[in-house]
Amino acid sequence: MYDFIKYDLADGVATITLNRPEVYNALNNEITFELQKALKEVKKDPEVRVVVLTGEGKAFCSGQDLKASSKEPNRSFSDSIHKRYNPIIKAIRNLPKPVICRLNGVAAGAGCSFALACDIVVASESAKLIEVFVNIGLVLDSGSSYFLPRLVGSAKAFELSTMGTRVSGKQAEKMGLVNKCAADDELDAAVKSYTDYYSKAPTKAIGLMKKMLNKSQNATLDEMLEYEAYNQDIAGATHDHKEGVTAFLEKRLPEFKGN
C-alpha cells in the first residue's frame, strides 16, 4: 500500500512511520503524498482512536529532501507548499482524533513543523528540534510561524527561527515545545502511556475539544461561550456521555466506545 511510510493499526492505535531512514526521513514528493493518504485513512476509520506519527531509524524527519528538489530547478515553492505540506498540517490539526508525535530524533524544517502540529509531543533525550530554514535562506513554512509563537512566545520564536537554534528534548520540554521528554530507552513506554489512555477515551468528545481549542486561538470569549454550548449538545448526545454517567452512578470505570 505504501512505499515510503509504514502504517500499522493495533488496539485502536494507528502508527504512521516515515520510512526513508537512509536520508533521515527527508521529504520527497512521494512521501508527502503518502502521508496525506494515510491521514485520510485514519480519519475515516472508526477503529482508529489515536494516531502516532514517528520516524524510522535515527531521525524523526530532516525536512525537505534538498537533493530531490535540486533536480527541479524551476519548481514553485508556493505550489509545493500548497500541494504537499499544507494539506498534511491541516489534516493533523483538523483530525477529530488525538495525534501523538513520537519524536525519536532530529526534527528539522518541515519535520519540525510536523512535530509542532501534533496534539502531544513525546521527545527522546537525544531528539533535536531545529527551525533550519534560515540556514538555506528560506522562511518558516508548514505552520511553524503559527505554532512557534503560540508555544514559546514571540521573542523566543524569533530567536529560534532566525538563528536556527538546535533545541534538545530536555530544553524543548522546559520551553513547552514538547509535552514530555524521556530517556531514549524509555521513549516507547512514555508514548504508550498516552496511547493507552487515548485508545480508551471518549474519542468524540476529545475531537470536539480539539476543534474548540483550535478555534479559541482566534476567537473572543463570547464566541467561545457560544461554541462550547453548541459542542456540548453534540457531546451530550453520544454513547460515551451516557456510558460515563451510567458508570459514575454504578460506581465503576466507564467503557468508552469512541462514539
Rank of each mutant, 00 (worst) to 15 (best):
R166H: 10
S145G: 07
S168I: 09
P202R: 07
M163Q: 11
A115R: 01
G169T: 05
A59K: 03
L140T: 15
Q36A: 05
T165C: 01
L140I: 11
F147M: 10
G244N: 11
I206Y: 09
Y85W: 13
F4H: 04
L138V: 14
E228I: 15
N231L: 14
V23I: 15
F114R: 00
T203Q: 09
D65A: 09
Y85H: 11
A172M: 02
D3F: 10
S80D: 14
K200M: 06
N135P: 00
K242G: 12
D45E: 08
A117H: 04
R84Y: 11
C61K: 08
P149C: 08
L66G: 02
R84Q: 13
E41T: 08
E173T: 13
V48N: 03
P73H: 04
E255V: 13
C112F: 12
D11R: 08
A219L: 04
P98S: 13
D240A: 00
D188L: 12
G63M: 09
N218A: 14
N259Q: 11
V167H: 07
T195Y: 07
H82A: 12
L148K: 01
E250C: 06
F133Q: 10
K215L: 14
P96K: 06
G236L: 08
L140H: 10
L151D: 03
A235G: 10
A108L: 09
S145F: 12
L53H: 07
P87V: 02
Y2D: 13
Y197M: 08
C61N: 14
P21A: 07
M224G: 05
L213R: 05
I5V: 11
T246C: 01
L9Y: 05
L35M: 13
L249N: 09
S70H: 10
N86E: 12
T165N: 02
L129W: 04
T54I: 00
D222T: 13
P96S: 10
F114D: 05
K210Y: 09
E186I: 00
K6W: 02
E186Y: 09
G109F: 09
F60R: 01
S70C: 06
V122Y: 01
A117E: 07
K211Y: 09
K6E: 15
I92D: 13
V106D: 12
N231E: 03
R20S: 09
K170T: 15
S144F: 11
N259M: 11
M175H: 04
D11A: 15
K170V: 14
Q36W: 06
G137V: 11
C181Y: 01
Y2N: 04
S199H: 02
K204W: 01
I100T: 02
S154D: 10
K43G: 10
E159Q: 06
K90N: 14
E243V: 13
L9Q: 04
A115T: 11
A190P: 04
N86C: 04
K210L: 15
D8V: 02
S145T: 07
N214L: 14
S78I: 12
N231P: 01
V139D: 14
C118L: 04
E125P: 03
D11C: 05
A38R: 03
I100R: 07
A115V: 13
L213P: 00
A190H: 04
C118K: 07
F33L: 10
E125Q: 12
F147R: 02
V152P: 03
K6S: 15
G57V: 12
K251H: 14
A107R: 06
R252G: 02
A229C: 02
